[in-house]
Computed example of a mutant assay.
Amino acid sequence: MPTKPQGPASYFPSIEAKYGRSIDEWKTAMRESGLTAHKALVEWLKSEHGLGHGHATALTQHHLNPEKWAS
């Protein structure tokens, strides 16, 4: 039986469905933004791309700490 995603990855299917971009596309956009602080990235995703707070936080956590969330 496949394991259910944990942590931020558990939000990924709904993020992709709601906002129409893949997680890789979001991570590329985050890298290209030049922002590196958690709060700045969350606020940028919310203000520039209309993400909700939970989705923006999940993407940011995974983007800034990929080794913590590796499967």
Results as ranks from 00 to 15, higher is better:
Met1Gly: 15
Met1Cys: 14
Met1Gln: 09
Met1Thr: 14
Pro2Glu: 09
Thr3Val: 13
Thr3Trp: 07
Lys4Ala: 13
Lys4Cys: 07
Pro5Gln: 05
Gln6Ala: 10
Gly7Gln: 04
Ser10Cys: 08
Ser10Phe: 02
Tyr11Phe: 15
Phe12Ala: 05
Pro13Cys: 04
Pro13Phe: 04
Glu16Thr: 15
Ala17Gln: 15
Tyr19Phe: 07
Gly20Asp: 06
Gly20Phe: 08
Gly20Glu: 09
Arg21Ser: 12
Ser22Asp: 11
Ile23Leu: 10
Ile23Met: 09
Trp26Cys: 01
Trp26Asp: 08
Lys27Ile: 06
Lys27Leu: 14
Lys27Thr: 07
Lys27Val: 11
Thr28Arg: 14
Thr28Pro: 01
Ala29Phe: 11
Met30Arg: 01
Arg31Ile: 02
Arg31Cys: 01
Glu32Ile: 11
Ser33Phe: 04
Gly34Trp: 02
Leu35Gly: 02
Leu35Ser: 09
Ala37His: 10
Ala37Met: 14
Lys39Glu: 13
Lys39His: 02
Lys39Phe: 08
Ala40Arg: 08
Ala40His: 04
Leu41Ser: 04
Val42Trp: 06
Val42Ala: 00
Val42Asp: 01
Glu43Asp: 15
Leu45Cys: 05
Lys46Trp: 00
Glu48Phe: 09
Glu48Trp: 03
Glu48His: 05
His49Met: 10
His49Asp: 07
His49Leu: 06
His49Trp: 12
Gly50Thr: 08
Gly50His: 04
Gly52Glu: 11
His53Phe: 10
Ala58Leu: 02
Thr60Pro: 00
His62Asp: 13
His62Met: 10
His62Phe: 09
His63Met: 11
Leu64His: 09
Asn65Ile: 03
Asn65Val: 04
Pro66Lys: 01
Pro66Leu: 03
Pro66Ser: 05
Lys68Ala: 15
Lys68Met: 13
Ala70Pro: 05
Ala70His: 11
